[in-house]
């Protein structure tokens, strides 16, 4: 199934460029001790520039695998995937994206500031430039003043914000997020969701976001990709009619509930097949 979302996004028409991420007929089979596992089957999807795309589905549906393929961390066994017009590996080498993992994964021996500076050091930014950028992104994620703290001195939510800052510190226009808020409690998660939307609005990045949570997916996304397992495939792509400005209580509106319902139906259909 090919889902062409490009024509439906207003921002795309303005840029007139090809989709940032273009996947057609992706196939990925892992060889394991228990025999081959079909992680992705015939996955086709275009992600337009500036979109916020959520991937939702049960465990084993290939949503994280798909994200890792985009990042060049897994290698496809079939199909064509392009990121910024390059192969995923070339895009990785060109540092086209920032990746936020399930756990913050901050280095315990580095302060928050130096953790955020890590990619900048590796990419060869000057000392002054590093300091400048670190201050800016920490401000962006509301962690100004925590630069000299060590990770263990911060709460889980703050650590995850620092890891988002780390992914934002260099100029990648794609942000790949793999269940970044999965381990956090609901109150913290709500606040971080709100902040993430604000951040997305400010930075104009293209975000691919993996989640288990239906409300989170509906609240955040311009596009919701519903996936199902065995083999991992896309069963539905929902374009959200919600406005760009989304207060938390938008979750009580009929529109929101209708989309959430459609996502749930999609997930259920995936199970019954």
């Amino acid at each position: 199934m090919i889902e062409d979302l490009k024509a439906e996004v207003p921002g795309q028409a303005r840029d007139g460029a090809a989709p940032v991420i273009q996947a057609s007929h992706l196939d990925l089979t892992f060889q394991t001790a228990d025999g081959p596992v079909h992680a992705l089957k015939d996955v086709s999807l275009d992600i337009p520039k500036g979109a916020f795309v959520s991937f939702i589905g049960p465990s084993g549906c290939g949503k994280t695998t798909f994200l890792r393929c985009i990042a060049g961390l897994e290698h496809l066994t079939g199909g064509i995937l392009s990121v910024n017009g390059m192969t995923p590996d070339a895009a990785r080498r060109a540092r086209a994206y920032g990746y936020v993992f399930q756990a913050a994964g901050l280095y315990p021996w580095r302060t928050i500031g130096r953790n955020v500076a890590l990619p900048l050091e590796i990419m060869g930014y000057s000392r002054a430039e590093r300091a400048d950028r670190v201050a800016r992104v920490l401000e962006l994620v509301d962690l100004a003043g925590f630069e000299n703290r060590f990770p263990w001195q911060l709460s889980g939510g703050m650590q995850q914000r620092a890891s988002i800052a780390r992914a934002l510190a260099f100029d990648a226009d794609i942000l790949l997020m793999d269940e970044p808020f999965g381990a956090l409690d609901e109150i913290v998660r709500d606040r971080l969701n709100e902040e993430l939307l604000r951040l997305w609005d400010k930075t104009h990045k293209t975000i691919a976001f993996v989640t288990h949570s239906i409300p989170e997916a509906v609240y955040l996304s311009t596009h919701i990709v519903v996936m199902s397992p065995r083999p991992g495939r896309i069963t539905d792509v929902i374009e959200s009619p919600l406005p760009k400005d989304r207060p938390l209580d938008i979750r009580d509106t009929p529109d929101f509930i209708a989309i959430a319902h459609r996502v749930r139906e999609g997930l259920r259909a995936g199970y019954q097949e």
Binding site: G72, L73, R92, R95, Y99, F101, G105, Y107, P119, I122
Partner: peptide, 10 residues
């Protein structure tokens, strides 16, 4: 995860 992170930075 920590090795993957380094990998994403090339």
């Amino acid at each position: 995860m920590q090795l993957d992170l380094m990998h994403t930075y090339n």
